[in-house]
Design a protein around this nucleic acid. Structure first.
Lengths: 337, 337
DNA sequence: TCCTTTTAGTTTACCGTTATACCAATAATA
DNA sequence: TATTATTGGTATAACGGTAAACTAAAAGGA
């Protein structure tokens, strides 16, 4: 825990000389002095105090990655991480930040907290936000001049940087695939489509596929709810009761889709013989269920990479205008259709 | 981004007076001045610069949660987070840290990095480490006087604080359950048992159950390998080839167990009719596979809670002597046995 | 009235680092 | 020899916040 002053004393020089050695400003230091100081730095295992450095430089090398959500009072109730999507994304973000010399601070936050508590407090250099965020919050980031990359948000993004997947197209491909397989009574299971997020875009694609194939949409085909495995199973229960009303389902996420399949089977329906199910994400857990889940795959690790890359380019000043990147999707045929 | 000095100027007082208002040292400030300053604080949306504060106080309120591991060069290869165990744990840790006023910094680290890069650099107030850690690393934490809580480490813990599950007992219960169901040829699938981690303890429990039931252990019953879904499936392939050699398997983790079941079924064996499988962890994904996985459940959220609680007690000085906590396990009977 | 408290502040110094300005001694040039 | 440039540093101030010591003015007590 030696400070630069103590190193300077040991080397009998001023602390500025030590600082110059640390920063490799060798033209300021003679060879002998430099080597003497370097030896002492190694011996004492010196590491700079980043608080001091950050205070001076007014930058932290910390990037906040956050998932805004209603914060539960009970950690057992917060099931976000049950979805491997989050794990894969945070893994990729941490990996790429580390590679670029940044540190990851992770936190679930409520909308209010986002500003008061973290961005300002910590002088985080940048922020990556996953999921739908209210407009007020988004505009505030502009005021405080911290680069932000939004992942999977759609509303009013002209002036923000964002990364999304081909959600609409994915919904379209999924639904089209069902239609090409002869399905005509296609239900859709999503989280809320009122929020302008991935769910509503995937739903839009679903509707477009119906339209283009002249299949009239029936209000009863829409099932909305909390995007969890359990809720998927719950919805399946309702669907199983009117089994003849559907010959296929487009479910907006794999986790939900697996729940749906589980629920359908528990209520005596066979997948895909009685009813086909297609998911969205391409998670490995799709291979765990039986039948294996046909799905629309997105590259989550690439998403994390792109988010970090975009943010780092902002921080380096290599990207000035807002960018909106869209990652491709791909139909993965397994056995549930 | 107003600093305390600017606030002071606006209020026409010294910055110390502002500081006193912020810290609610009201006996130092008259009612009028106080209210004037408070108004300005609100108007300017003042938040203290934590770098400055931390520099002065030499504490950061940051807790590092880290999973030591060989850092892959390719984020696609890092599959740690595919195991929902990690997600549930980090969720619980973040939740409880936030509740106690701490911030979570997460990072995968190599052993070397642990010290040089983070603990010293960031003046993190405490560290939570998951998984087996070499002795050298552990001893260093003592030198630098940062409280550390180890999760799921066993080796040489006398002087460290640690939290584990009843791993040995869990392995015993699992194996005993198989034996009580009439199984006699019980294979065991673990990650490396050379490292002194949870895998070796669970294996110890397995061996004890065999011993106590006078079942001689056969070297061919042991399968070691990388603890992933894929590797579980790979091992199952080998097991399927000598199908008559086994009537049951104890797999040290659910993720691996699900892979094993998948692999067994892909090679024509029926679970549990031909061979029974029991897992360990109690993850929700155990319910996704068919048959649903019988397993030994541990409470991961409780584990995170205990880790944070113990660490915070260390930081508050409310726990001086090293503590070693062991969380209970419970047999959950489903359909794979 | 004089002395002591109390009130309501202010001043100073420091946390560890770094940018900037400065300086002394030596080397190079005219 | 006098002047200028280079080398190898040092001294100072600042980042924003806080603990501790200090002080001026008002209030209280004898």
């Amino acid at each position: 825990m030696a400070s630069i002053v103590e190193i300077a004393k040991m080397a009998k020089v001023s602390k500025m000389t030590v600082s110059n050695v640390i920063h490799k400003k060798y033209e300021k230091v003679s060879k002998e002095t430099r080597e003497r100081i370097e030896r002492i730095l190694v011996e004492t295992n010196y590491t700079p105090n980043l608080f001091a450095r950050n205070l001076k430089s007014n930058s932290s090398k910390i990037i906040l990655f956050t998932i805004p959500q209603t914060i539960e009072n009970d950690p057992y109730k917060n099931t976000a991480f049950n979805n491997p999507f989050y794990g894969e994304l945070i893994n990729s973000i941490e990996f790429n930040l580390r590679k670029s010399g940044y540190y990851l601070m992770f936190r679930f936050v409520s909308d209010e907290e986002i500003l008061s508590n973290l961005v300002l407090n910590w002088n985080v250099d940048g922020v990556i936000i996953l999921g739908a965020v209210k407009k007020e919050i988004r505009t505030v980031f502009k005021d405080i001049n911290v680069p932000v990359v939004f992942i999977d948000t759609y509303a009013d993004l002209e002036e923000s940087d964002s990364i999304v997947t081909e959600d609409e197209q994915g919904g379209f491909i999924a639904t089209n695939h069902l239609i090409r397989r002869g399905k005509r009574k296609i239900g859709v299971v999503v989280s809320s489509i009122k929020e302008i997020g991935v769910a509503s875009k995937r739903y839009d694609g679903y509707r477009r596929a119906l339209d283009e194939n002249n299949i009239p949409f029936d209000d009863k085909w829409l099932f909305e709810g909390f995007p969890s495995f359990e809720f998927g199973a719950l919805i399946a229960q309702r669907i199983a009761k009117e089994k003849d009303a559907f010959d296929a389902l487009f479910v907006y996420s794999d986790v939900m889709a697996i729940g749906v399949i589980k629920g359908l089977k528990d209520h005596g329906l066979r997948v895909p013989q009685d009813i086909s199910v297609i998911g969205f994400d391409g998670l490995y857990i799709g291979d765990l269920c039986e039948p294996r889940l046909t799905t629309i795959k997105q590259d989550i690790t690439a998403k994390g990479y792109m988010a970090v890359d975009l943010l780092v380019r902002k921080l380096d000043g290599r990207s000035l205008a807002p960018e909106h990147l869209t990652l491709p999707v791909k139909l993965i045929e397994k056995e549930s259709v």
